[in-house]
Design a binder for these strands. Sequence first.
RNA 1: GUGGGUGUAGCUCAGCUGGUUAGAGCGCCAGGUUGUGGCCCUGGAGGCCGCGGGUUCAAGUCCCGUCACUCACCCCA
Length: 425
Amino acid sequence: MGTDQYQPLQGMSDLAAPDIDIWQALESKSRKLLDGYTVQEVRTPVLERTSVFTRSIGDTTDIVQKEMYTFEDRGGRSITLRPEGTAGVMRHVAGQGPEGSESRLYYMGPMFRAERPQAGRKRQFHQLGVEFLGCPSPAADAECIALQQHLAAEWGLENCRVRINTRGMPEDRTIVSRGLRDRLLSSVSDLCEDCRRRLETNPLRVLDCKHESCRGVVDGLPPITDLMSSEARDYYQDVLHILGRLDVEVEQTPKLVRGLDYYVHTVWEICHPALGAQDSISGGGRYLIPVGGREIEGVGFAVGLERVIAALKEQGKVEDLVEKHRGIWLISSGKAAFDENMVLMQTLRLRGMRCGMDLRNRSMKAQMRLANRQSASHVIIRGDHEMDNGTFILKDMSTGDQEELDMPALMERLHVVPLIDVGGR
RNA sequence: GUGGGUGUAGCUCAGCUGGUUAGAGCGCCAGGUUGUGGCCCUGGAGGCCGCGGGUUCAAGUCCCGUCACUCACCCCA
């Protein structure tokens, strides 16, 4: 500790033991579940041309205006570290032609935003995101939300709340914005400075402003669904109806609008009570994103994995998620036993067993302590006596029982010890 | 980008209004058991007191700067 040279950059951190077990458990549980929903993984580059993000996220958003890590590469091209996952996926599927715009994809990995770090917000953070492309049906919106909630449950998160709203049809966007502006104009003097600006750039954002006075104005407004076409309201009702049949509980939240420009129709977020000011673990919606001269339609969401882990820790759910390691620990007394144990260890590993031994020349007591710390289920002890007789002592660490066995008997016995699970937990 | 709090051992922290060899718990290592873990007992190692500058006879302690962590605003996952 102490010197800065060993610290990562501000807002970035090393993911290592013991927390890395949580990450791996989350990842493997998620992959398995996603596969069950017939969603395929896509891994796009972390670095993209800057235009990939400015085009799809929207020039007026804070992400584009002040939070992107943008550099020039050696050829003088402007490139950006991805601040979110959707834009890269859109670039990917656009390159695939019509077939790509029917995909069901997920991504998992680091995102970068140059913000001031605080609880639940890092400069490098990790998202799991899902995109259902094409399929302009309320069923897709509902399936998406159901999947998202299933994930949360699979991870062991309790007391999640889903807030949902609609932003209306694509054609409704200007009508809603204009209608909203007209209604807000009458009480413009009560709005904060930011919201007066938003009135021109993006009136929807006024709805989720946290200023006391703005909320007063907003609370008096009728829901924005009133401004929308009947198709938009029908679509929303369909989504709610299907969610009901799928047994997914949601809270209708007329003031929820979400910050990204590309959203249309359904928008939602999931928040968790154990978190601080950033209590939203996940957000999503239906979108229409311009890519290379056309628009790709889809519905999707992104989950902030750091926030999920924070919530799980807060709930004391981490132990349930992470399995203890177990396996076999080899203990030797004397050089001959040590040499032979190296060979035995390799043999066991080739058979798929998790095992290890102390490579320093330490006392048996120290080796036993290590075995205990490794949560070994069994220990194999060899010393001069065993070397002379060609035997092994097998000790069960939970009961303390031990017996002297020859090689065939030892191998027989070890079948009960769990093998390495190559497919993850 | 703005504001508050914090930086002392691997970890969590104590250190009163500046005063002599900077402490505790946990962890680690070793011994108690000359071939046996968890519990217990004993001992040991481990500190540019974040970094730089200033005030002072004297700074972990006060002042300034800086870096980082943390919390909040803005916004988002």
